[in-house]
Amino acid sequence: MHPSIYAGAVTDAWEWDPSLYSGSAEYYARGRAAYPAELATAFAAELGLDGSGRLLDVGCGPGSLTLLLAGLFEEAVGLDADGAMLAEAARQAAGAGNCRWVHRRAEELPAGLGRFRLVTFAQSFHWFDRPRVAAAVREMLTPDGVCAHVHASTHESVHPAIAELVREYLGPVRRAGQGVLPDGTAGGEAEIYRAAGFHGPRRFEVPGRVVTRTVDEVVAGVFSLSSSAPHLFGTGRAGFEAALRRRLAPAETFTVRLREIAVDLWFTRGC
């Protein structure tokens, strides 16, 4: 048994805690594939975005989607509960004068942030008190405003040895912060949006693509995940990384196909 297995107070009933992505911010931008420019083009075409209005990206992490869409709005606001993620977002945004970063939990919305033309959830909605957040967001939209739920994966495992090694170090059940997610993250978001008063969805898609990742990027990708965030390994972190690099050798690059990106648009009135 590795020394990091079951480090911390793991409980059966999962609740969010600030350690969810602890230590992951520095790895996120390097380890995750960037959202493609075609996604911004599709958003602009679907919603007639013309540089006016405001964007709120909830659970923005290091600003991956916020920064992609910021040029389509007067102001882009990224909100996240992880201060290190926001610091990385600010670093990535150097020179983007219309971006603002807010360190709050989604459950604190509306938080005096005002009204928005578009609110986005990209790989984040499942971490929240979803009925509460969806209801708050609906009231924050302008009369013609839209909430977008982005179904995407910016990370795909490139080698079966990765999951095997994570299980060796962290145990067989998926870790998340100080708890576990034996059944994965929650689904069924459509019912939650409708219960909050949204209409829809109207869906558009951006095709999948092939990306090539270096070993360093693959390692960063592993540490960018909540299920294998750096803090979870405790004193075994260096040993885990060394073992991971050995198992990935002798390959220097890996090619992986990312799935298509599907975006569900939810409206405050019939669309």
Rank of each mutant, 00 (worst) to 15 (best):
S4I: 00
A13L: 12
E15P: 00
S22I: 00
A33T: 12
A33F: 04
E38G: 00
T41D: 15
F43G: 01
F43S: 00
F43K: 01
A45H: 07
D50N: 04
P62W: 03
S64R: 10
L65G: 09
T66F: 02
L68T: 04
L69Y: 08
L72T: 02
D80Q: 07
A81Y: 10
A81K: 01
E88G: 14
A90Y: 06
R100S: 15
R104T: 08
R105G: 03
E107V: 02
E108G: 04
P110V: 06
A111Y: 02
F116M: 09
Q123D: 13
Q123T: 13
S124I: 03
F128K: 07
R130C: 06
R132I: 02
L141E: 13
S153A: 14
H155N: 03
V158I: 14
E164L: 10
E164N: 09
V166L: 10
G171A: 09
P172C: 03
P172G: 12
A176H: 08
G177E: 00
V180D: 12
P182H: 07
G184D: 13
T185D: 14
G188W: 11
A190R: 01
H199P: 01
G200P: 11
G200W: 09
E205A: 14
P207T: 13
P207K: 03
V210D: 12
E217Q: 14
V218E: 15
G221N: 09
S227D: 08
F233L: 10
T235P: 15
G236R: 11
G236K: 03
A238Y: 01
L244G: 02
R245F: 05
E252L: 09
R257Q: 14
E260G: 11
D264R: 02
L265D: 08
W266K: 11
C271N: 07
